[in-house]
Simulated scan of single mutants.
Amino acid sequence: MVRAAVLPAVGSPLEITEILLPDPGPGQVRVRIAAAGVCHSDLSLSNGTMRVPVPAVLGHEGSGTVVSVGEGVTHVAPGDGVVLNWAPACGACHHCAIGEVWLCAGALRGAAGRHARTADGTELHPGLNVAAFAEETVVAADCVLPAPDGVPLDQAALLGCAVLTGYGAVHHSARVRAGESVVVFGAGGVGLAALQAARIAGASSIVAVDVSPAKEELARRAGATEYVVASDTTAKEVRALTGGHGADVAVECVGRAATIRTAWESTRRGGRTTVVGIGGKDQQVTFNALEIFHWGRTLSGCVYGNSDPAADLPVLAEHVRAGRLDLGALVTERIGLDGIPAAFENMLAGKGGRALVVF
Protein backbone atom coordinates (compact mmCIF):
# COMPACT_ATOMS: atom_id res chain seq x y z
CA MET A 1 0.00 0.00 0.00
CA VAL A 2 1.22 3.50 -0.83
CA ARG A 3 -0.32 6.93 -0.36
CA ALA A 4 -1.55 8.75 -3.46
CA ALA A 5 -3.67 11.70 -4.60
CA VAL A 6 -6.67 10.18 -6.39
CA LEU A 7 -9.09 12.06 -8.64
CA PRO A 8 -12.36 10.12 -8.15
CA ALA A 9 -14.27 12.03 -10.85
CA VAL A 10 -13.73 15.05 -13.07
CA GLY A 11 -14.46 18.18 -11.06
CA SER A 12 -14.24 16.39 -7.72
CA PRO A 13 -11.69 17.19 -5.01
CA LEU A 14 -8.58 15.05 -4.84
CA GLU A 15 -8.62 12.31 -2.21
CA ILE A 16 -5.39 11.48 -0.39
CA THR A 17 -5.68 7.78 0.26
CA GLU A 18 -3.81 4.50 0.25
CA ILE A 19 -3.78 2.45 -2.95
CA LEU A 20 -2.62 -1.02 -3.91
CA LEU A 21 0.37 -0.94 -6.24
CA PRO A 22 1.29 -4.09 -8.21
CA ASP A 23 4.73 -5.46 -8.85
CA PRO A 24 5.95 -4.47 -12.32
CA GLY A 25 4.96 -6.76 -15.15
CA PRO A 26 6.94 -7.32 -18.37
CA GLY A 27 8.19 -3.98 -19.72
CA GLN A 28 7.29 -2.09 -16.56
CA VAL A 29 9.25 -0.27 -13.86
CA ARG A 30 8.33 0.48 -10.26
CA VAL A 31 9.62 3.85 -9.05
CA ARG A 32 9.77 5.38 -5.58
CA ILE A 33 8.94 9.03 -6.20
CA ALA A 34 11.39 11.61 -4.86
CA ALA A 35 9.49 14.68 -6.04
CA ALA A 36 6.63 15.68 -8.33
CA GLY A 37 5.88 19.13 -9.70
CA VAL A 38 2.30 20.42 -9.62
CA CYS A 39 1.66 21.48 -13.22
CA HIS A 40 -1.24 23.44 -14.68
CA SER A 41 -1.95 20.40 -16.86
CA ASP A 42 -2.83 18.46 -13.71
CA LEU A 43 -5.33 21.16 -12.83
CA SER A 44 -6.70 21.00 -16.39
CA LEU A 45 -7.17 17.24 -16.06
CA SER A 46 -8.93 17.59 -12.72
CA ASN A 47 -11.41 20.22 -13.93
CA GLY A 48 -12.14 18.66 -17.33
CA THR A 49 -10.28 21.10 -19.61
CA MET A 50 -8.27 18.05 -20.68
CA ARG A 51 -9.71 14.54 -20.69
CA VAL A 52 -8.59 11.79 -18.34
CA PRO A 53 -10.21 8.43 -17.53
CA VAL A 54 -11.28 8.32 -13.90
CA PRO A 55 -10.69 7.42 -11.18
CA ALA A 56 -7.07 8.42 -11.74
CA VAL A 57 -3.84 9.21 -9.99
CA LEU A 58 -2.63 12.51 -11.45
CA GLY A 59 0.90 13.93 -11.60
CA HIS A 60 3.18 13.72 -14.63
CA GLU A 61 6.28 15.76 -13.74
CA GLY A 62 8.39 13.57 -11.47
CA SER A 63 11.62 11.89 -10.54
CA GLY A 64 12.58 9.04 -8.26
CA THR A 65 14.50 5.84 -7.69
CA VAL A 66 13.86 2.50 -9.37
CA VAL A 67 12.55 -0.07 -6.89
CA SER A 68 12.19 -3.02 -9.25
CA VAL A 69 11.87 -3.82 -12.93
CA GLY A 70 9.85 -6.29 -14.94
CA GLU A 71 10.99 -8.75 -17.51
CA GLY A 72 12.75 -7.26 -20.51
CA VAL A 73 13.75 -3.94 -18.91
CA THR A 74 17.47 -3.34 -19.35
CA HIS A 75 18.10 0.44 -19.54
CA VAL A 76 17.50 0.99 -15.81
CA ALA A 77 18.02 -1.15 -12.72
CA PRO A 78 16.96 -1.07 -9.06
CA GLY A 79 18.64 1.84 -7.29
CA ASP A 80 18.93 4.02 -10.40
CA GLY A 81 17.67 7.58 -10.30
CA VAL A 82 15.17 8.36 -13.07
CA VAL A 83 13.14 11.20 -14.55
CA LEU A 84 9.59 10.35 -15.60
CA ASN A 85 8.69 10.90 -19.25
CA TRP A 86 4.91 11.29 -19.51
CA ALA A 87 4.86 11.36 -23.34
CA PRO A 88 7.15 8.60 -24.63
CA ALA A 89 7.34 8.38 -28.40
CA CYS A 90 6.18 5.16 -30.03
CA GLY A 91 8.86 5.38 -32.74
CA ALA A 92 6.54 3.94 -35.37
CA CYS A 93 3.95 6.59 -36.30
CA HIS A 94 4.18 9.22 -39.05
CA HIS A 95 5.35 11.98 -36.72
CA CYS A 96 8.06 9.84 -35.16
CA ALA A 97 9.24 8.84 -38.63
CA ILE A 98 9.76 12.50 -39.61
CA GLY A 99 11.43 13.44 -36.32
CA GLU A 100 8.49 15.18 -34.65
CA VAL A 101 8.40 12.92 -31.60
CA TRP A 102 6.55 15.52 -29.50
CA LEU A 103 3.54 14.99 -31.80
CA CYS A 104 3.66 11.20 -31.52
CA ALA A 105 0.25 9.69 -32.19
CA GLY A 106 0.81 7.06 -29.51
CA ALA A 107 2.42 9.17 -26.80
CA LEU A 108 -0.74 9.20 -24.67
CA ARG A 109 -1.80 5.71 -25.59
CA GLY A 110 -2.17 4.77 -21.94
CA ALA A 111 -0.07 2.49 -19.78
CA ALA A 112 -0.21 -1.20 -20.55
CA GLY A 113 0.11 -3.99 -18.04
CA ARG A 114 -0.74 -4.02 -14.36
CA HIS A 115 -2.50 -1.01 -12.83
CA ALA A 116 -2.88 0.31 -9.30
CA ARG A 117 -6.18 -0.22 -7.49
CA THR A 118 -8.12 1.27 -4.63
CA ALA A 119 -8.58 -0.68 -1.42
CA ASP A 120 -11.92 -1.99 -2.73
CA GLY A 121 -10.34 -3.22 -5.98
CA THR A 122 -11.33 -0.41 -8.35
CA GLU A 123 -8.76 0.05 -11.11
CA LEU A 124 -6.97 3.41 -11.13
CA HIS A 125 -5.86 5.06 -14.35
CA PRO A 126 -2.40 6.66 -14.44
CA GLY A 127 -2.87 10.35 -15.29
CA LEU A 128 -0.74 11.19 -18.35
CA ASN A 129 0.85 7.74 -18.17
CA VAL A 130 2.92 8.09 -15.00
CA ALA A 131 0.77 8.83 -11.90
CA ALA A 132 3.46 10.80 -10.06
CA PHE A 133 1.21 12.04 -7.23
CA ALA A 134 1.97 8.92 -5.23
CA GLU A 135 4.74 7.63 -2.98
CA GLU A 136 5.47 4.98 -5.63
CA THR A 137 4.23 4.27 -9.14
CA VAL A 138 4.45 1.54 -11.77
CA VAL A 139 5.03 2.79 -15.31
CA ALA A 140 5.94 1.51 -18.75
CA ALA A 141 9.70 1.24 -19.18
CA ASP A 142 9.75 3.93 -21.88
CA CYS A 143 8.30 6.36 -19.34
CA VAL A 144 11.58 6.51 -17.41
CA LEU A 145 14.85 8.12 -18.43
CA PRO A 146 18.10 7.91 -16.42
CA ALA A 147 18.43 10.93 -14.16
CA PRO A 148 21.38 13.11 -15.24
CA ASP A 149 24.48 13.22 -13.07
CA GLY A 150 25.06 16.38 -11.06
CA VAL A 151 21.38 17.32 -10.77
CA PRO A 152 19.68 16.87 -7.35
CA LEU A 153 17.06 14.15 -7.74
CA ASP A 154 14.23 16.26 -6.34
CA GLN A 155 14.98 19.15 -8.70
CA ALA A 156 15.34 16.72 -11.61
CA ALA A 157 11.55 16.29 -11.47
CA LEU A 158 11.22 19.73 -13.08
CA LEU A 159 13.11 18.52 -16.14
CA GLY A 160 10.22 16.18 -16.94
CA CYS A 161 7.79 18.92 -17.95
CA ALA A 162 8.23 22.57 -16.90
CA VAL A 163 11.82 22.94 -18.07
CA LEU A 164 11.52 20.76 -21.17
CA THR A 165 8.46 22.77 -22.17
CA GLY A 166 9.73 26.27 -21.36
CA TYR A 167 13.23 25.69 -22.71
CA GLY A 168 11.93 23.92 -25.79
CA ALA A 169 9.43 26.68 -26.54
CA VAL A 170 12.30 29.17 -26.75
CA HIS A 171 14.95 27.02 -28.41
CA HIS A 172 12.96 24.59 -30.57
CA SER A 173 9.70 26.33 -31.41
CA ALA A 174 10.45 30.08 -31.39
CA ARG A 175 14.14 29.50 -32.22
CA VAL A 176 15.26 32.63 -30.37
CA ARG A 177 18.55 34.00 -31.64
CA ALA A 178 21.16 36.01 -29.75
CA GLY A 179 20.28 39.70 -29.73
CA GLU A 180 16.53 39.23 -30.23
CA SER A 181 13.93 40.61 -27.85
CA VAL A 182 11.55 38.21 -26.10
CA VAL A 183 8.34 38.66 -24.11
CA VAL A 184 7.04 35.80 -21.94
CA PHE A 185 3.41 35.78 -20.79
CA GLY A 186 2.90 33.96 -17.49
CA ALA A 187 5.52 33.61 -14.77
CA GLY A 188 4.55 30.19 -13.47
CA GLY A 189 6.83 27.17 -13.68
CA VAL A 190 6.88 26.97 -17.49
CA GLY A 191 7.13 30.74 -17.92
CA LEU A 192 10.05 30.98 -15.50
CA ALA A 193 11.80 28.21 -17.44
CA ALA A 194 11.16 30.11 -20.68
CA LEU A 195 12.67 33.27 -19.18
CA GLN A 196 15.81 31.36 -18.24
CA ALA A 197 15.92 29.82 -21.71
CA ALA A 198 15.69 33.26 -23.32
CA ARG A 199 18.62 34.41 -21.19
CA ILE A 200 20.62 31.31 -22.18
CA ALA A 201 19.81 32.03 -25.84
CA GLY A 202 21.34 35.49 -25.49
CA ALA A 203 18.17 37.56 -25.87
CA SER A 204 18.93 41.27 -25.63
CA SER A 205 15.68 42.25 -23.91
CA ILE A 206 13.48 39.88 -21.92
CA VAL A 207 10.08 41.14 -20.81
CA ALA A 208 7.99 39.12 -18.35
CA VAL A 209 4.22 39.69 -18.18
CA ASP A 210 2.01 38.37 -15.38
CA VAL A 211 -1.16 39.36 -13.54
CA SER A 212 0.65 39.39 -10.20
CA PRO A 213 2.98 42.22 -9.16
CA ALA A 214 4.39 39.84 -6.53
CA LYS A 215 6.09 37.72 -9.19
CA GLU A 216 8.47 40.43 -10.39
CA GLU A 217 11.36 39.26 -8.21
CA LEU A 218 10.89 35.66 -9.41
CA ALA A 219 10.82 36.77 -13.04
CA ARG A 220 13.90 38.97 -12.75
CA ARG A 221 15.80 36.21 -11.00
CA ALA A 222 14.95 33.97 -13.96
CA GLY A 223 16.32 36.48 -16.45
CA ALA A 224 13.66 39.12 -17.10
CA THR A 225 15.11 42.55 -17.78
CA GLU A 226 11.67 44.19 -17.65
CA TYR A 227 8.42 43.32 -15.87
CA VAL A 228 4.88 44.28 -16.86
CA VAL A 229 1.75 43.70 -14.78
CA ALA A 230 -0.93 42.51 -17.20
CA SER A 231 -3.59 45.08 -18.10
CA ASP A 232 -5.54 46.41 -21.08
CA THR A 233 -2.42 48.31 -22.17
CA THR A 234 0.03 45.40 -22.00
CA ALA A 235 0.77 45.27 -25.74
CA LYS A 236 1.52 49.01 -25.82
CA GLU A 237 3.82 48.69 -22.80
CA VAL A 238 5.72 45.80 -24.37
CA ARG A 239 6.14 47.72 -27.61
CA ALA A 240 7.44 50.72 -25.67
CA LEU A 241 10.00 48.49 -23.94
CA THR A 242 11.18 47.00 -27.24
CA GLY A 243 12.05 50.04 -29.31
CA GLY A 244 8.46 50.92 -30.14
CA HIS A 245 8.05 48.16 -32.70
CA GLY A 246 7.35 45.13 -30.49
CA ALA A 247 9.25 42.03 -29.44
CA ASP A 248 10.86 39.71 -31.94
CA VAL A 249 9.35 36.74 -30.10
CA ALA A 250 6.40 36.26 -27.75
CA VAL A 251 5.98 33.08 -25.71
CA GLU A 252 2.48 32.59 -24.29
CA CYS A 253 2.38 30.26 -21.27
CA VAL A 254 -1.18 30.93 -20.08
CA GLY A 255 -3.56 29.37 -22.60
CA ARG A 256 -6.26 32.04 -22.68
CA ALA A 257 -7.66 33.64 -25.81
CA ALA A 258 -7.12 37.19 -24.55
CA THR A 259 -3.51 36.48 -23.61
CA ILE A 260 -2.77 34.81 -26.94
CA ARG A 261 -4.21 37.83 -28.73
CA THR A 262 -2.14 40.20 -26.58
CA ALA A 263 1.01 38.17 -27.19
CA TRP A 264 0.38 38.43 -30.95
CA GLU A 265 -0.11 42.20 -30.68
CA SER A 266 3.08 42.54 -28.61
CA THR A 267 5.32 41.21 -31.37
CA ARG A 268 6.83 43.32 -34.12
CA ARG A 269 5.85 43.15 -37.75
CA GLY A 270 7.28 39.83 -38.93
CA GLY A 271 7.63 38.62 -35.34
CA ARG A 272 6.93 35.16 -33.95
CA THR A 273 4.35 34.13 -31.33
CA THR A 274 4.59 30.68 -29.76
CA VAL A 275 1.61 29.41 -27.75
CA VAL A 276 2.57 27.00 -24.97
CA GLY A 277 -0.42 27.38 -22.64
CA ILE A 278 -3.22 24.83 -22.88
CA GLY A 279 -6.61 26.50 -23.18
CA GLY A 280 -10.11 25.13 -23.35
CA LYS A 281 -11.92 24.56 -26.64
CA ASP A 282 -14.25 27.43 -25.74
CA GLN A 283 -11.32 29.87 -25.91
CA GLN A 284 -11.68 31.40 -29.38
CA VAL A 285 -8.93 33.64 -30.80
CA THR A 286 -9.87 35.77 -33.82
CA PHE A 287 -7.85 37.62 -36.46
CA ASN A 288 -8.98 39.46 -39.55
CA ALA A 289 -7.52 38.62 -42.93
CA LEU A 290 -6.00 42.06 -43.49
CA GLU A 291 -3.98 42.10 -40.29
CA ILE A 292 -2.56 38.64 -41.00
CA PHE A 293 -1.28 39.97 -44.31
CA HIS A 294 -0.14 43.34 -43.00
CA TRP A 295 1.73 42.28 -39.88
CA GLY A 296 3.38 39.22 -41.40
CA ARG A 297 3.60 37.59 -37.98
CA THR A 298 3.87 33.88 -37.33
CA LEU A 299 1.61 32.18 -34.76
CA SER A 300 2.47 28.61 -33.81
CA GLY A 301 1.47 26.04 -31.24
CA CYS A 302 4.01 24.24 -29.11
CA VAL A 303 3.56 20.76 -27.64
CA TYR A 304 5.86 19.70 -24.79
CA GLY A 305 8.36 22.33 -25.95
CA ASN A 306 8.69 20.52 -29.30
CA SER A 307 11.23 18.48 -27.35
CA ASP A 308 12.74 15.04 -27.56
CA PRO A 309 13.28 14.22 -23.87
CA ALA A 310 15.97 11.60 -24.51
CA ALA A 311 18.02 14.10 -26.53
CA ASP A 312 17.21 17.25 -24.57
CA LEU A 313 17.68 16.01 -21.00
CA PRO A 314 21.50 15.79 -21.32
CA VAL A 315 21.57 19.32 -22.79
CA LEU A 316 19.50 20.70 -19.93
CA ALA A 317 21.64 18.86 -17.38
CA GLU A 318 24.77 20.47 -18.79
CA HIS A 319 23.16 23.90 -18.43
CA VAL A 320 22.36 23.04 -14.79
CA ARG A 321 25.89 21.84 -14.04
CA ALA A 322 27.36 24.94 -15.68
CA GLY A 323 25.17 27.23 -13.58
CA ARG A 324 23.25 28.62 -16.55
CA LEU A 325 19.97 26.95 -15.58
CA ASP A 326 18.73 27.33 -11.99
CA LEU A 327 16.07 24.72 -11.28
CA GLY A 328 15.63 25.90 -7.70
CA ALA A 329 14.54 29.32 -8.96
CA LEU A 330 11.35 27.77 -10.35
CA VAL A 331 10.22 26.34 -7.00
CA THR A 332 8.28 28.64 -4.69
CA GLU A 333 6.98 26.03 -2.24
CA ARG A 334 7.69 22.46 -1.21
CA ILE A 335 4.63 20.52 -0.10
CA GLY A 336 3.31 17.07 0.71
CA LEU A 337 0.47 15.28 -1.08
CA ASP A 338 -1.98 17.07 1.19
CA GLY A 339 -0.82 20.39 -0.24
CA ILE A 340 -1.80 19.70 -3.87
CA PRO A 341 -5.37 21.12 -3.64
CA ALA A 342 -4.00 24.38 -2.20
CA ALA A 343 -1.40 24.44 -4.99
CA PHE A 344 -4.24 24.18 -7.51
CA GLU A 345 -5.98 27.13 -5.85
CA ASN A 346 -2.76 29.17 -6.00
CA MET A 347 -2.53 28.46 -9.74
CA LEU A 348 -6.07 29.69 -10.26
CA ALA A 349 -5.21 32.84 -8.29
CA GLY A 350 -1.99 33.40 -10.24
CA LYS A 351 0.23 32.93 -7.20
CA GLY A 352 3.75 31.52 -7.08
CA GLY A 353 5.93 29.55 -9.47
CA ARG A 354 6.22 25.77 -9.24
CA ALA A 355 4.93 23.87 -6.20
CA LEU A 356 7.02 20.73 -5.68
CA VAL A 357 5.62 17.68 -3.86
CA VAL A 358 8.58 16.23 -1.99
CA PHE A 359 8.41 12.75 -0.47
Rank of each mutant, 00 (worst) to 15 (best):
A35E: 04
A36N: 07
A36K: 09
G37R: 08
V38R: 03
V38I: 11
L45E: 09
S46E: 04
G48Q: 04
G48M: 00
R51I: 13
P53S: 00
P55I: 02
V57L: 02
L58Y: 03
L58H: 03
E61H: 02
T65V: 10
V67D: 08
S68Q: 06
V69C: 05
V69Y: 02
G70K: 11
E71H: 14
E71Y: 12
T74D: 11
G79K: 00
D80N: 13
G81H: 10
N85Y: 13
P88K: 01
A89D: 15
C90Q: 11
C90H: 11
C93T: 13
H95S: 14
I98M: 15
G99M: 09
W102R: 07
L108T: 15
R109T: 10
A111D: 10
A112K: 14
R114A: 15
H115A: 15
T118H: 07
A119E: 14
H125N: 15
G127F: 03
G127W: 02
N129F: 12
A132W: 07
A134H: 07
V138E: 02
A141M: 12
A141D: 14
D142R: 05
C143W: 05
V144E: 05
P146D: 06
A147V: 09
A147Q: 06
P148Y: 04
G150C: 03
G150W: 04
G150N: 08
D154I: 01
C161T: 07
C161M: 09
L164K: 00
L164N: 08
A169L: 03
H171C: 12
R175M: 13
V176T: 02
R177A: 11
A178H: 05
